[in-house]
Design a protein around this nucleic acid. Structure first.
Lengths: 120, 120
DNA sequence: GTGATTACCTTGACAATCTAGGTATGTGCC
DNA sequence: GGCACATACCTAGATTGTCAAGGTAATCAC
């Protein structure tokens, strides 16, 4: 399975997948496939969640202690792993949202070139 | 030089360094060290530009054709490489700023959980 | 001369992501 | 029954961007 990687244009901002997963699961416990669809929908169709990014992310988040899963039957009668936030995951969600706000705002400032910065 | 990498908390959002460099150089031709200080300042002190990220970035952007450099003497009387945008770099700046706006806005929508998405 | 600052650079490791493959099962249609 | 399609999972390999940690050299203030 050798192949060339890296997208023509990245579909998501690196580092934001985890926090989006956490946020999605805070709203409703669901399975991987459902998480992907939910993020795509709530982003207005702008973000595409690739399965090759999603499943490794879920695995590492669970390993980190932020998620747990339970095998259940999906709405469409298929076996699916339903993920849920742990208390630690909730804490991380809050922290990561804060980080996102802080950093994205900072990037915005750099790109904007407001009077604020011209005077600094 | 074996060492453990990955920061306790990332200082910049991955993928945003290039566009910030381009934006900084659009404002004024300057050298690497100056770019780093300018980004730190215009971000309100939130972003830290590590040299180990900066110089490779400048190198790859120049190789890509978005920058050129010229050795000059800095304001403080030291030899320094002054970077300047190429026309291609200007085009890329516009495009990357658009991308940033689009993607960061999308992440915002996912994290926000507005009524808009609840109704979708 | 000593130390701080300016200014450059490189190596090695690592984490996140994508591409591209794969498996399996249920549903609808013919 | 057979087939396509959607749902739902998974992994390997490659690439990229970033960071940590080292280094060099010149200038300036003391």
């Amino acid at each position: 399975m050798p192949k060339t990687a890296q997208p023509a244009q990245p579909e998501i901002l690196q580092g934001t997948l985890d926090v989006m997963i956490l946020r999605t699961l805070e709203r409703a416990e669901t399975h991987g496939y459902g998480i992907a669809r939910a993020i795509e929908r709530s982003s207005g169709g702008v973000l595409a969640v690739e399965e090759g990014s999603l499943y490794p992310a879920l695995y590492r988040m669970e390993k980190r202690g932020d998620l747990t899963h339970e095998w259940k039957t999906s709405e469409l009668n298929r076996r699916a792993k339903f993920y849920r936030l742990t208390p630690s995951g909730r804490k991380r969600l809050v922290h990561e949202v804060e980080q996102w706000e802080k950093l994205s705002h900072a990037v915005g400032r750099v790109l904007a070139g407001s009077a604020r910065e011209a005077l600094a």
